[in-house]
Design a protein around this nucleic acid. Structure first.
Length: 300
DNA sequence: TTTGGACCTGGCTCC
DNA sequence: CTCTTCAGGTCCAAT
């Protein structure tokens, strides 16, 4: 199948960084400058030039998303309606630190992910590293997802349904797949959602205000403030949320001397740090956070 | 309300 | 090659 294209400048979207920086764990660079992954139950191939985003899929017509064209799916996933250059200008003008240290890393966007994939992937992220998380998520899809076919020698699977993760045998299977103590969190959270809500409940959290959505998420086992915030930001449309991880915490201490007395991230401290950056960066604070964090984690 | 430990695993550094 | 430490946290028990 031939490549199709969408107009999109590299300053608005840096594919490589955006796909690999630890938001989604399912994209792989299968050739130089070319990424393969699963989105809306389709296998996608993506690449870009300075002003075009190229895409093709394994299947022509998506059964599970027939109401959307493939172009619509990508525009939604990358949130291309958001003018990133304009936001960089705003963050640079409001925050000298962003301007001097982060503003040159162009095209880092927040993906609009599926809440189910987002939640269960990030339950895996606690006290863990990106490389291992990626392997775990891949094995989870292989074990509990459905096959989407083979593409250039690689098999691809859908992200498992909540129902399939709620079954009795899941914890033990995940343990064998190397999930450690997170195996229980995944199974218990899935079971809690199926027993108290429904498969679609997570999607509906998009309609709730931030605080309510977060508080609902934190009722799940293995979901604390940080994971809940990641889900709010990356799949529930709460663009101003800044998840406070160890990196953000380190940075925050430099600029908020009043917080230095705390040895650990207490709920109060967590909120103070999150609020600080939310006020500093504004409506899309979570996006600015991802730009800054990328720079920190990869030590550029 | 706050604090310190334990928790699975595998990649990493340093012997 | 073995050992220690640690990685984008969370839960639990004891203050």
């Amino acid at each position: 199948m031939a490549w199709r294209k969408i107009a999109c400048s590299k300053t608005e979207l840096d594919l490589g960084v955006t796909l690999i920086c630890g938001q989604s764990f399912r994209w792989k660079e299968t050739a130089p400058g070319e990424w393969t992954g699963v989105l809306k139950n389709l296998v996608w191939n993506l690449k870009q030039s300075d002003d075009l985003l190229f895409y093709k899929t394994l299947e022509e017509s998506p059964a599970a998303s027939s109401d959307l064209t493939q172009e619509d799916i990508l525009k939604d996933y990358f949130q291309l309606h958001v003018n990133l250059s304009k936001l960089y200008e705003q963050w640079s003008s409001d925050d000298p630190n962003f301007k001097s240290k982060a503003s040159s890393f162009r095209g880092v966007r927040i993906l609009r992910q599926d809440p189910v994939e987002n939640l269960f992937s990030f339950i895996c992220s606690s006290n863990n590293n990106i490389s291992r998380i990626s392997g775990m998520v891949e094995r989870m899809c292989e074990e509990f997802g459905t096959s989407l076919g083979e593409y250039e020698g690689l098999h691809h699977y859908s992200f498992p349904s909540i129902e399939s993760l709620a079954k009795g045998s899941v914890e033990q299977k995940l343990r064998k797949l190397g999930f450690g103590y997170r195996a229980k969190y995944i199974n218990q959270s899935a079971r809690f959602i199926m027993e108290n809500h429904s498969e679609h409940w997570l999607h509906n959290l998009r309609k709730l205000p931030y605080n309510e959505a977060k508080s609902e998420l934190m009722k799940l086992c293995g979901v604390g403030a940080k994971v809940a915030d990641c889900v709010c930001l990356m799949s529930l449309d709460k663009n101003d949320v800044v998840p406070v991880d160890t990196h953000v915490w380190q940075i925050a201490q430099k600029y908020l001397p009043s917080l230095r007395s705390s040895k650990t991230i207490t709920p109060q401290v967590y909120n103070a740090v999150g609020n600080h950056f939310r006020e500093l960066w504004g409506e899309y604070a979570g996006w600015a956070h991802s730009v800054s964090l990328h720079r920190i984690v990869y030590n550029f």
